[in-house]
């Protein structure tokens, strides 16, 4: 067992600065995760050349892999740093910010484009209205419920976008996660009333048709959400919607 934990971190001083690499080493202790190791480095911000440097900046929040804030590239793989155990990782552990979002500082990125996409696709169930949406709580088949539960676990972490060859700063594509949410909310007993609106929102530029079916999203999703099933299902829904729009007016 190594007596040290070595890190190689891609750093960037600000949104408009150029990135650079810096290496760190800290004494080994069992059961570290990447966030707890970064916390140690924050207390001891000394690089391998012995220079005292500005502590590494990163985002984190829940520490139990449900918020998605601490997502970064760890040894080239997009994942949550709170759930990445140091003992499982090859060293030096290479940390990089997600490449598909603008870097704020070091490992911290601006993920607001993902939340804009959720807004654009109306990935919610409207409950305010001038009418009763339903009288009693809707009954859902437990099997169907189980299927949809998978999609409700999406934490908008950005792993699927990071791995998607169609998603990058120059493309308008909303990415896989919001499509999963459209699929979920279209299947919801109340959400389905706004199905047409949601489908129309993904039938324009940057919508479903911009998916190239490389299917990396479903491979890297930390919650194993069947994103490609959502994309296939929405393929059917938008095709039917197209015929509906053309012929049923």
């Amino acid at each position: 067992m190594s007596s040290e934990i070595k890190f190689k971190i891609k750093r960037q001083d600000g949104p408009n600065n150029s990135p650079y690499w810096e290496e760190f080493a800290m004494p080994y202790a069992p059961s570290h995760n990447v966030v707890s190791a970064l916390m140690y480095l924050r207390e001891h911000p000394i690089n391998t050349r012995g220079e005292r440097v500005r502590p590494v900046v990163w985002d984190c929040n829940c520490m139990e892999e449900v918020c998605g804030a601490c997502t970064m590239l760890i040894n080239g793989v997009p994942k949550q740093s709170c759930a990445a155990l140091v003992d499982d990782l090859a060293q030096p552990i290479v940390l990089e910010p997600l490449t598909k979002f603008p870097v704020v500082r070091d490992l911290q990125v601006d993920r607001s484009r993902m939340f804009d996409a959720l807004r654009m696709t109306k990935a919610w169930v409207p409950i305010d209205g001038t009418y009763d949406i339903h009288v009693h709580a809707p009954i859902i088949d437990p099997k169907v419920q189980q299927e949809r539960y998978e999609f409700s676990r999406c934490m908008t972490c950005g792993c699927c976008m990071e791995a998607c060859p169609q998603y990058h700063p120059d493309s308008a594509f909303v990415g896989p996660a919001p499509l999963g949410q459209v699929y979920l909310h279209n299947a919801h007993p109340t959400g389905r009333f706004f199905r047409d609106d949601r489908l129309h929102s993904i039938m324009g530029e940057g919508g479903l048709t911009d998916c190239g079916n490389a299917q990396n999203c479903v491979q890297v999703c930390p919650k194993n959400i069947p994103l490609t099933t959502a994309i296939g299902g929405l393929g059917r829904q938008t095709t039917m919607q197209m015929f509906k729009d053309i012929f049923m007016k």
Partner: peptide, 17 residues
């Protein structure tokens, strides 16, 4: 509009993409 990433993600569908 595509930014292929087959060097990082070695999945069959990604190669076919």
């Amino acid at each position: 509009q595509s930014k292929p990433n087959i060097t990082q993600y070695h999945y069959g569908a990604n190669y076919r993409y």
